[in-house]
């Protein structure tokens, strides 16, 4: 029946269009190893996010990282200040907290989240560089913040 056939074709097209639209906007978490993570952060298209505690970050971190402690009560408020269209490269010490953070990020509208498997431990094992600088303190003024030695 030509009429039925047309309806079938039309339905298939609509379903295809809907699924294509869905796949484009569907948030995704991609777990990557240290080598791929390094390639991504060096491409410079997104935001590097360290979700460890300040004491851990003081011991060493990936250069040019933004830092929000996963267990900071304002974690969600803070991540919502990061532009959501950006790719987020999230890491912690061993990969556990960053996996949790990645879930929170996607639930808050971030579409492309890359999680560093094995965290900074895996990064160091791969022989990649770690920056060691004074941790940013919330107490200081923004003017003095600009004078700190955090590498950018």
């Amino acid at each position: 029946m030509p009429f039925n056939k047309s309806i079938l074709v039309l339905s298939a097209c609509v379903a295809l269009l809907l699924s294509a639209g869905k796949s484009q906007s569907q948030p995704s978490i991609t777990n990557v190893d240290a080598t791929e993570f390094k390639r991504l952060v060096e491409a410079g298209n997104g935001i590097i996010l360290d979700v460890r505690a300040p004491e851990e970050i003081a011991e060493g971190h990936i250069a040019n990282t933004s830092t929000i402690n996963l267990y900071d009560e304002g974690f969600v408020d803070k991540i919502n200040l990061i532009p959501k269209e950006k790719e987020i490269y999230v890491y912690c010490q061993a990969g556990g907290r960053s996996a949790e953070a990645a879930e929170i990020l996607t639930k808050n509208g971030f579409v492309k989240v890359f999680n560093l498997e094995k965290g900074l431990d895996g990064w160091v094992e791969s022989g990649f560089p770690v920056a060691k600088t004074e941790v940013e303190k919330d107490e200081k003024s923004s003017k003095s913040a600009s004078k700190t030695s955090v590498p950018c």
């Binding site: 935001i47 933004s66 803070k78 940013e136 923004s142 913040a145 950018c152």
Partner: peptide, 20 residues
């Protein structure tokens, strides 16, 4: 007006530019 946070790396990158 420069709206920033201390934990944001791009903000830190901009800080010396704003100072200048």
């Amino acid at each position: 007006i420069d709206f920033h946070t201390v934990w944001c790396a791009p903000c830190r990158k901009m800080a010396p530019v704003i100072d200048k």
